[in-house]
Design a protein around this nucleic acid. Structure first.
Length: 120
RNA sequence: UGAGUACGAAAGAUGAUCGCGAAGGCCGCAGGGUCUUCGAGGAAAGUCCGAGCUCCACAGGGCAGGGUGCUGGUUAACGGCCAGCGAGGGCGACCUCAGGGAUAGUGCCGCAGAAAUGUAGACCGCCCGGCUAUGCCGGGUAAGGAUGGAACGGUGCGGUAAGAGCGCACCAGCAGUCAGGCGACUGACUGGCUAGGUAAACCCCACCUGGAGCAAGACCGAAUAGGGAAGAGAUGAGGUAGCCCGCCGAUCCUUCCGGGUAGCGUCGCUAGAGCCGGCAGGCAACUGCCGGCCGAGAUAAAUGAUCAUCACCGCGCAAGCGGGACAGAACUCGGCUUAUUGACUGCUCACCGA
RNA sequence: UGGGGAGUCGCCAAGCUGGUUAAGGCAUCGGACUCUGACUCCGACAUUCGAGGGUUCAAAUCCUUCCUCCCCAG
């Protein structure tokens, strides 16, 4: 239930470009969320951390935080979407609970939470 | 106690839960499931050097170009390291140095200054002589002044019209001989009395050096079309590094039109100039022998999150609270450089006490 | 990850190779012309060339170590 195998991840540059170009975006101070509907498919997700955030250690940490936050609440999300979650500058010094809260806030606004799960 | 200096080592430990990557075993036709083991660094960084490896010819010759530059050693190699020599800095422990050649040649040395390298040069002085005489002219003089970063060895005595290595002593420097040292070099003696700086300017000398890089390169599979048109060249197109040689070499190149630009592909991909311990050689860098160990292999790219306990540091009487830097493998090694935490050890100096 | 290039005034830049003056244009400020503005004319504007160290009498320039930015290769 909490697993996150490679098949649920966005892996190709093409897919990333498609989501960036055609998807809708939602943002708050910590996170930017891109959503592209893909009807009938398994939900896939990608994580990104831009060069502005800092050196390689900081960028890796941001991506791992985002992945952990997504992993722990993915069962509340609907299927049939490609998502990209991008970390922003204020995320660098945050801890996991704050990241989770920010992510669920965005998912609520994007209306991809499943009805039986509800907000965390 | 304070200040400093050198060197080595380390970069918290254990457990639980959830999750990720790889390898191997088992189950399954298969998607996959499950168990075990392993899973970031001293700098993984910067990419400043040197190698391995791959392709270009089994990488060859000459010129050009580039690099290094005290001596000896070390190494696969190096611009690294070790030991020494010389110069400079520090009271000292110790530190710094691209540190060959300026007597092979060429260039440059602004402004200032009379003059910037030629045995040249007289602005003020100094001395001698002449004159139309408180000045002017001619000559001598580089000791004094002035300029400059630098002015043709320095100090002293003699000498002289005034001066000058003109003569002498000492010092610096140069050349030669002898002695010591593998050598850089050091010491002694002799000689002629003097030769500016700059080679991180060109250069000379000695030594080294082919080019590209794992996006190298190899393989498998898919796709299209053995597409069309025009032009140049076989006393040889074209390729091979800048040129010449040499080599490869039968179809190749340029332009236009059209088509294609595709695979979460496989290998290369991790056992290596490897790590740890002991012994031996060496002042040391390092080397040899013996024994043991296997320690990441990803590809939008794994190595994470949460919690608990115990160490360590700081604050606090205590309960407790807070803290742990710099930073993330991408073919692999040897160095260098840069970033950075809190401790340990040796040595030096200053002060105080016994 | 590998390879290559560039940092000079607020902006665009010349000067670096071959060492002794930091050109020029735009912008800004002050003045003149005008009743006022524009145009035009005159004047001002870099103690230092991304940062540190070295060579030299002397460094934007030569050497070296860092920092920042840009480009190319799937």
């Amino acid at each position: 239930m909490y697993k996150l195998p490679k098949s649920g991840r966005l892996r190709r540059n093409k897919c990333f470009q498609a989501v960036y170009r055609s998807g809708k975006s939602y943002a708050n101070r910590q996170i930017v969320l891109y959503v592209l509907p893909q009807h009938g498919r398994e939900r896939r997700v990608g994580f990104a951390a831009g060069k502005r955030l800092g050196n390689a250690v900081v960028r890796n940490r941001v991506k791992r935080l985002l992945r952990e936050a997504y992993r722990l609440q993915q069962h509340n999300l609907k299927n049939g979407f490609d998502l990209i979650i991008v970390g922003r500058q204020t995320l660098v010094n945050e801890t996991l609970p704050a990241v989770s809260a920010a992510l669920s806030h965005l998912c609520d606004r994007a209306k991809i939470l499943s009805s039986k799960g509800g907000a965390v």
